[in-house]
């Protein structure tokens, strides 16, 4: 058995709860997304993700993985079809409502971290709570807990530019979890990391999922998908090519 397969089995064992889950977290129905009337980035794609599930979207560059993630996050809107997350029709939300939806429902982790360089690690992690107007004391306590859990509490006062790639991605994960979102979306979370840092992040995602976190991750990394995901969906030219 290859290490990847072993990892996948291990992930299945950890994610056993998800396979039994019946509540739908994400319902993508017949969605298309075209840019400026050109070729479709997504072409009549449908997809369901259950609560507590960990789904990996795989596929070559340009297959529509990130576009799908953006639609689920409310960062973009489909040209056709509907996107429902936790009972909310995301495709119908105004910009303001989409922002509020992200605060309450979504944690986002990006390939290049997207941390604010001028803010300290703590201030970066606090940002979603502060923007949502959460009480300061409670938010600080939560941020400290997250930093400690993720093993980066010693960098709390540092600026992101001084951290390693793995550490930065852990800060990004901490920020994504700050508001306790029911859904974590990760776009190539190990794509910009060296092998060791990639492994750290992989373990982090596995642990999160073990704690019941619903995760959708976009990746090229077959090992990551095999280790973390309970289900993989392969996209080609904006369509589901296989699961």
């Amino acid at each position: 058995m290859t290490p990847a397969a072993k990892g996948a089995l291990a992930a299945d064992a950890r994610c056993g709860r998800a396979s039994l889950a019946s509540l739908t977290m994400i319902d993508v129905a017949d969605v298309s997304r075209r840019y400026d009337g050109g070729q479709a980035a997504l072409d009549h794609l449908s997809l369901h993700v259950a609560e507590g599930e960990c789904l990996a979207l795989l596929g070559p560059s340009g297959s529509g993985k990130s576009t799908l993630l953006n639609l689920i996050a409310g960062l973009d809107r489909p040209t056709e079809g509907t996107v429902t997350v936790g009972g909310t029709r995301v495709d119908r939300l105004s910009e303001a409502a989409a922002a509020r939806y992200r605060r309450a429902t979504i944690g986002l982790v990006f390939q290049f971290f997207n941390l604010i360089d001028d803010l300290t690690v703590t201030d970066n992690v606090l940002l979603p709570a502060q923007i949502a107007g959460r009480p300061a004391t409670q938010s600080r306590r939560r941020a400290a807990e997250l930093l400690e859990t993720l093993g980066i509490d010693r960098h709390a006062g540092a600026y992101p530019g001084r951290l390693s790639g793995g550490e930065r991605q852990r800060v990004a994960v901490a920020r994504a979890l700050m508001n306790r979102p029911p859904l974590l979306l990760a776009d190539e979370p190990t794509g910009a990391l060296d092998t060791a840092s990639g492994a750290e992040v992989r373990k982090l995602l596995v642990d999160l999922h073990a704690d019941g976190q619903t995760i959708v991750l976009v990746t090229h990394d077959e090992v990551l998908a095999a280790t973390v995901a309970t289900r993989t969906v392969r996209l080609v030219d904006g369509q589901v090519a296989g699961a």
Binding site: A73, L75, E95, A96, A99, R100, R102, R103, A104, L108, N114, L115, I116, L127, P128, I131, A132, R175, N179
Partner: peptide
């Protein structure tokens, strides 16, 4: 980035 973590217009 700010918008992605929930900043409204």
């Amino acid at each position: 980035v700010h918008k992605s973590v929930g900043m409204t217009p």
